Simulated assay, not measured.
Amino acid sequence: MKKWARWQDWVAVVVGLYAALSPIWTATDTTATTVLIVLGVLTILAALSNLSQPGVRTTEWVEVAFGILMFISPWVMGFSGMTGVATTAWVVGAITIIVGAWAVPSAMKLHGSHHRPVSA
């Protein structure tokens, strides 16, 4: 796989950027703002790492983990009642999980990590 070519990671960059910038146009509080900015930036960094080094399985899973953290953050950090910012976290988290998980098999294949039958 060529560097800077996997569309899934570009989607993660875009949604991470959206999350990080969303406090500009979404009613929020200090906690939600901090969560969205930090997890948004971390998602962008993981996706850029994946784009620059395709096939590194660890960062693919890190991207998925950031998506999970983003998705659960409204409940864990107590801002689920703030509809706009919570919806942003849920949607961005879900998209990041989906595109990150979608890219894992190609990263595994690139490194020859797919399962091979064991011969007896």
Rank of each mutant, 00 (worst) to 15 (best):
T83L: 10
T59E: 06
G93T: 03
W102A: 14
I72D: 04
K109Q: 14
S106Q: 14
W61V: 09
G55F: 08
P105R: 05
K109I: 12
W61K: 08
I24G: 06
K3Q: 12
I44S: 02
K109H: 13
L69W: 08
V76M: 14
T59S: 08
I68V: 15
F79R: 02
T28W: 03
F71I: 05
G55M: 11
A120E: 14
T28H: 10
A20N: 06
T87K: 04
E63Q: 14
A103K: 05
E60F: 05
W61T: 06
S106M: 10
V104D: 04
T58G: 09
R57V: 09
I37D: 02
A19W: 01
E63W: 06
A65N: 07
A101Y: 06
V85T: 06
D9S: 13
G78T: 03
G40V: 03
D29A: 09
A12Y: 00
A19F: 01
Q8F: 03
G16H: 03
A94W: 00
V104A: 09
S73T: 07
W75E: 08
T34K: 10
Y18P: 03
A19M: 02
A20E: 03
P105S: 07
W10A: 02
V92K: 02
Q8C: 09
V56I: 09
E60D: 15
K109D: 14
T34L: 13
T88Y: 02
A89V: 05
A65T: 13
V41N: 00
W10V: 01
V64W: 00
V91G: 00
V91W: 00
T33M: 12
F71M: 11
L110H: 15
I24Q: 11
I97K: 06
M1I: 14
I24R: 12
K2P: 13
I98E: 00
V85R: 01
W25E: 07
